[in-house]
Design a protein around this nucleic acid. Structure first.
Lengths: 185, 185
DNA sequence: CTGGAAACGGAGCAGGCGTTCCGCTGTGGG
DNA sequence: CCCACAGCGGAACGCCTGCTCCGTTTCCAG
């Protein structure tokens, strides 16, 4: 019913997405289209047949990553310990940044790219709000700390991904600790 | 004895530096050379005669900004109140980032550019160390916080400059508060 | 005032990017 | 098995960048 496209086309599309995912994660979003095509073992035309514009390819790959983050926050809602839930989200987010160079650009990139994720971001924000409200009710947050503070902390962690790789991991870890110390009662 | 160059050459050099300073601050370091030349009211060749390569122009402009930061930390050494001195450095640094888009790239940019400031960075680090040691002696720092934590916090603040201008100011302010709360006893 | 060196401006070059065009290839329904 | 056509690869286009070349203008010492 669905197979309008040939089997080899479908397989090539998958290889392109896989190559883009890997390339973006390790080298950042500015990897040239030619390079993605080369890694996928296809010609540039094939790449453009599946993704008519660079932005669409980027959006497709980033959608997966952004979803990962939302899923992670949702999962934290199941944790009965409010502080462990919230601090786990911050720490795991930091961990993700260390291993995936593309993710931070989904959150920081100039409108064009990140505008596509408004819905995902809202879902992420809502789940995070719940975590913050619970933590606040449990009295583990410093007075005056709200969800925007936590989001600002996450953004700060994400931004650090631009540092030279040699130091970014260490700095991200320190900032994550700093953010947690900054929101805790 | 020194005027080996003509008066108009000297004046053009000044205009180029001024134009670059302004352009970098408002639009970021990736402003094209043509655009800097246009703003300065000179041809590109004139620009290249004074700065043989783009990197040299960038380094010249950034050197001023980086110096500003070092001077500011040195001045804080005169403050008798250790917490006010340290927190003032963090806040003023945040303020600078909000108003100058170029500064963060001096600290974050890939080696090529930022490597030129190793000496300045060491001086900055030494002065900051003194502030941290004093604050620690005064007992206003949380246990385990060291100068690297403060530096990591400053880097986090600097990195945020890449956010869309509309939100970056607010987020930078929140993160600065978060960092201060995170290091305070 | 004048001439030659210093300085100038902008067209032009090389190279990298995203994207398109088009002649060929190989898949899969009949 | 076969051939129409979906799908392919890579050369080529247009644009933008950093940087250079060279004929022309401007300064200023004598």
């Amino acid at each position: 019913m669905s197979q309008i496209q040939r089997a080899d086309a479908r397989s090539n599309r998958d290889r392109v997405v896989a190559a883009a995912r890997e390339a973006f994660a390790s080298a950042g979003l500015e990897v040239p289209m030619r390079e993605v095509a080369r890694r996928a073992g296809v010609g540039v035309a094939t790449l453009y047949r599946h993704f008519p514009t660079r932005t669409e390819l980027v959006a497709t790959v980033l959608a997966e990553r952004v979803d990962d983050c939302t899923v992670q926050v949702r999962r934290a809602l199941d944790d009965p310990d409010p502080w462990r839930a919230l601090s786990g989200v911050v720490r795991e987010f930091a961990e993700r940044q260390i291993h995936d160079r593309a993710l931070n650009e989904a959150l920081l990139g100039p409108g064009e790219v990140s505008a596509a994720f408004q819905r995902e971001r809202r879902e992420h924000a809502q789940a995070l709000n719940v975590l913050v409200v619970r933590a606040r009710a449990a009295g583990v947050l410093r007075d005056g700390v709200d969800a925007d503070d936590v989001r600002a902390g996450l953004l700060a962690i994400a931004s650090l991904r631009r540092l030279p790789a040699a130091t970014s991991a260490r700095v991200i870890g320190r900032v994550a600790d700093l953010v947690l110390a900054g929101i805790r009662a």
